Simulated scan of single mutants.
Amino acid sequence: MLTKLMKHVSALEKKVLELHEELEENNRASANLLRLGVVVKAEANTVDIQTGDNLVKRIPFFVLAAGRVSHYRRPSVNEQCLLMNLGSGDNLNNAVALMGLPSTHFQSPTVKENEVMTDYGNGMSELYNLDDGSLICRYPGGMKIYGDTWQDGDYQATGEVTDHTRSMQADREIYNEHEHPGILPGPAKTKPTEQQQ
């Protein structure tokens, strides 16, 4: 009877050790499921991420859209991310990087609840105010539109307005100084227009 009891205890001990080992493996896997990381290298569609002592190379990163509508932004070196391990265990090579976590290195461009802002760097930004519906765009390098434009409302410019021929100011100068030869008999010309453009 004692021998039978010892065999049973030995079998239970073996099972407990197996369960302990399985629990340890599950703990390691869950610890690597989600991790914070920092971009150390960015390529066209992959990044190298430093997470703790681990360097994970050439893993894909999330973009805003990648279907019929697509969007691309290459992550920045030192940008913080969330590393999601799609595999199991300690191997992070099956992970993907979810970008866009603000950090002390790359802070949020605004923290006001009524503002949506994209800061592209180098002075270029777009700021939309949710309360009054205004949009302020700063494009220090200019903006080109390929296509027809239509506007319902006033248009104001602090600089020149120019078409394919000349500026509006050049047209004003021509109009304001133009003469009408040949209208009056003889060599006389009419005076410049009284109404300025």
Rank of each mutant, 00 (worst) to 15 (best):
R68Q: 14
R68K: 14
V69Y: 13
S70L: 14
S70R: 15
H71K: 14
H71R: 15
H71V: 11
H71F: 14
Y72I: 04
Y72G: 02
Y72K: 09
Y72L: 04
R73V: 06
R73E: 13
R73S: 05
R73F: 06
R74L: 06
R74W: 07
R74D: 07
R74H: 08
P75L: 04
S76V: 01
S76Q: 12
S76K: 12
S76Y: 07
N78S: 10
N78D: 09
N78V: 01
E79L: 04
Q80T: 07
C81G: 04
C81F: 05
C81Y: 03
C81A: 06
L82T: 02
L83E: 00
L83A: 00
L83H: 02
M84G: 00
M84K: 08
M84R: 06
N85Q: 05
G87Q: 08
G87S: 07
G87L: 02
S88Y: 15
S88W: 14
S88E: 15
G89D: 12
G89W: 13
G89Y: 13
N91R: 13
L92I: 06
N93W: 08
N94I: 05
N94C: 04
N94M: 08
A95M: 02
V96L: 09
V96S: 00
V96W: 01
V96T: 07
A97I: 07
